[in-house]
Design a protein around this nucleic acid. Structure first.
Lengths: 193, 193
DNA sequence: ACCTGAACACCGTTCAAGT
DNA sequence: ACCTGAACACCGTTCAAGT
C-alpha cells in the first residue's frame, strides 16, 4: 500500500490500515451502524489514525465492499470455463444473490453512507463490471441473449436483490427475480425460441 | 387524524402535524440529510412536539413517502381506462421513473433511515401494491404478460430505477431498464410471439 | 391534552502533543 | 512520518416546567 505520491507506507501504518479493514468487515457485516469509534477501538488505533486512512464513513465502506466484491467477480472466469455461457451467467447470478444475502449488513452500510448514486457508479468500474462484461460477451456470441446489452443494464436489472430481506425466506423471491431478468436478457436473442 | 385510541387530535395538534409533514416533504426532497431539528424549527414546533408525532426519522420519512406514492398509484386507474393494458403498464412505469427521479432526495432519505428491508416491505402493502396488482391483472387477462406474476416480482424488477443518478442523463438508462423488465414480464405470455 | 426548549447522550472530526 | 486521545461540534432524544 502506497500513499497518494506513490511512497510506500511505513510498515506500522500499513498494519494499522489492514487491521482497520479487517475489523470493519466483521463489524459492518453484522450491523451497518457500528460507530466508527468502535471500529477504531477494536482495531487498536486512535481516532486520528482512523481518519488518516479513511476520511469519512463512505470511504471505509466502499473499500471494504470493493474488496469483498472482488471475490464474487473472480468466480465468473471459472464458471465460464466449465459451463455453457447461459448456465454460467445464471449460476453467477445465484452466487451474487447468496453473497448479497450473506453480506446484508454491508450492503446496508453502503446504502446509508454512500452519496448513493455517485458511489455505486464508481463501484461499477471495478472488477464486477469486468466480470459482467465477460459473461454478457460470451452469451452474446453464443446467441443466448440479445445483442447490445451493457454491464450497466445488467446491474440495474438485478438491483432488486439488495431489496430482499436476508432474514426472511429469500430464496424463492430471488429465484423469481433472477428468472425474470434472465428472460428479459434472452428476449430477442438470435438463438431464442 | 386520530391518535392510537381513535380519539381525534386537538385542532392545534393536527395543524402541527400537517405543518411538519409539509416542511419535511420540501426539505427531504432537496436533500436527504436535513437535521430533524431544522424541520422542527421551520415547522414552528418544539423538539418535543416533533417527537410526539414522529418518534424517529424513519417514521417521518415513511409517512412522507407514503403520501407521495399515493399520487403515482392513482394514475394507474386512469391509464387502464384509456389505454390497452400493456401500454398502460409501460406508461405507468415511465411515470414511476419520472417520479423517482424528481423525488430523489426523498428516496435517499428512505434508503438511509429505513431498517431497509422491513420498511420497504411495509410500503409494499400500500397503494402502490394495489396499483401494480391492477395493472398486472389487466395484462394477465389480456394475455400480454405471463400468468402468475406478483406485485412483489414487479417491485423487485424495477428496483434499479432508484439506483440511477437523477442529476445525470437518466432517461436512456431508465428506458433500457424498463424495456428489459417489460420483455421479462412478456416472456411466456399466451399472446406473445 | 399538548407544547416548549434547555439538558443530555452520542458520535464524527479535529488537533496539540508525543514518539 | 505517524500515532494518540482529549476536545469540539453537531444532532437525536428526553423531560421538567408551562399553558
Amino acid at each position: 500500500m502506497r500513499d497518494e505520491k506513490g511512497v510506500p507506507l511505513r510498515p506500522d501504518a500499513q498494519r494499522n490500515r489492514e487491521r482497520i479493514l479487517d475489523v470493519a468487515l466483521a463489524e459492518l457485516t453484522r450491523t451497518a451502524d457500528v460507530p466508527l469509534s468502535t471500529i477504531a477501538k477494536k482495531a487498536g488505533v486512535g481516532q486520528g489514525t482512523f481518519y488518516r486512512n479513511f476520511p469519512n464513513r463512505e470511504a471505509l465502506v466502499l473499500e471494504v465492499y470493493r474488496h469483498e466484491m472482488q471475490q464474487v467477480a473472480d468466480a465468473a472466469d471459472q464458471l465460464l470455463r466449465t459451463r455453457a455461457p447461459d448456465r454460467a451467467l445464471r449460476e453467477w447470478m445465484d452466487r451474487l444473490a447468496q453473497y448479497a444475502m450473506a453480506k446484508a449488513g454491508l450492503a446496508d452500510a453502503l446504502r446509508k453512507s454512500a452519496v448513493t448514486h455517485g458511489s455505486l457508479a464508481r463501484l461499477g468500474h471495478g472488477p464486477v463490471t469486468r466480470a459482467v462484461a465477460l459473461l454478457l460477451n460470451a452469451n452474446e456470441e453464443a446467441g443466448t441473449i440479445r445483442p447490445g446489452l451493457t454491464p450497466d443494464d445488467f446491474v440495474l436489472a438485478i438491483a432488486g436483490l439488495w431489496q430482499i430481506d436476508p432474514h426472511s425466506d429469500w430464496q424463492p423471491r430471488a429465484k423469481r427475480l433472477l428468472d425474470l431478468v434472465m428472460d428479459g436478457l434472452r428476449a430477442g436473442a438470435p438463438g431464442g425460441p
